[in-house]
Write a protein that binds this DNA or RNA. Structure first.
Lengths: 107, 107
DNA sequence: TAATAATGCAACTATATGGTTGCAAATATA
DNA sequence: TATATTTGCAACCATATAGTTGCATTATTA
């Protein structure tokens, strides 16, 4: 397998999956798969595959009720990405001068 | 092609590329390709391919001097990822799984 | 009970990805 | 000049990815 952050990054590295995630996050209610698929140009099975990737990353939670599977977005795994990013925050403004700070703290 | 943020996310979605990026960022000087490759178990050509992906995402800048190509990390493109993430920050403190965290800590 | 709707599963295709090896070209050094 | 070093290019391989279609199954509803 792959580690957690890799799973999350791979999930959001695809534009369609970012869109699906966004649709689910701003939806006021959980959406069944067919209803999600209707909002995209690709087939229901295509959407299902993307949902599986998102689910494995923890970004989507699926709740089966009868014949329907209701999907909800869960933003929590993004925390991990945020943490990884923050480790580099000091570099993206003034990389050279902050490299010194980093070395001071980590050597 | 793909848009900028997709390129950056795909670049950092691979653990080896995250490692390369990290090595270059904390290196006190720009490193030629062979020297980077020596720090990894995969072949020089494998590293070269990863460097190309990182370069296309703007995360690595390469400066040719004579027969050598010196590589430097550039964290700036991570800003874009950070911005995308911040759009969801409000959700990861206020989601169902955090209700779970709350209940865990207070019952 | 019969028809309809939502879904999963499986097979298939095309292309991307992560990796390798061999060789040629350019540059540096003895 | 002869040799060694750094690199790029090309071919190749195995697997993953993004997508499709067809069909069977399970629920719902008329």
């Amino acid at each position: 397998m792959q580690d957690k952050i890799t799973a999350v990054l791979k999930a959001i590295a695809d534009p369609t999956r970012r869109e699906i995630f966004h649709v689910l996050l701003i939806a006021s209610t959980a959406l069944p798969i067919t209803q999600i698929a209707n909002q995209f140009d690709i087939s229901r099975q295509g959407i299902t595959k993307h949902l599986k990737t998102l689910e494995e990353a923890g970004l989507v939670v699926i709740d089966t009720k009868g014949r329907e599977r209701f999907c909800n977005a869960n933003a929590t795994p993004l925390k991990e990405v945020n943490q990884w990013l923050q480790g580099y925050e000091q570099f993206w403004n003034n990389s050279l001068s902050n490299l010194g700070d980093y070395l001071d703290k980590n050597s």
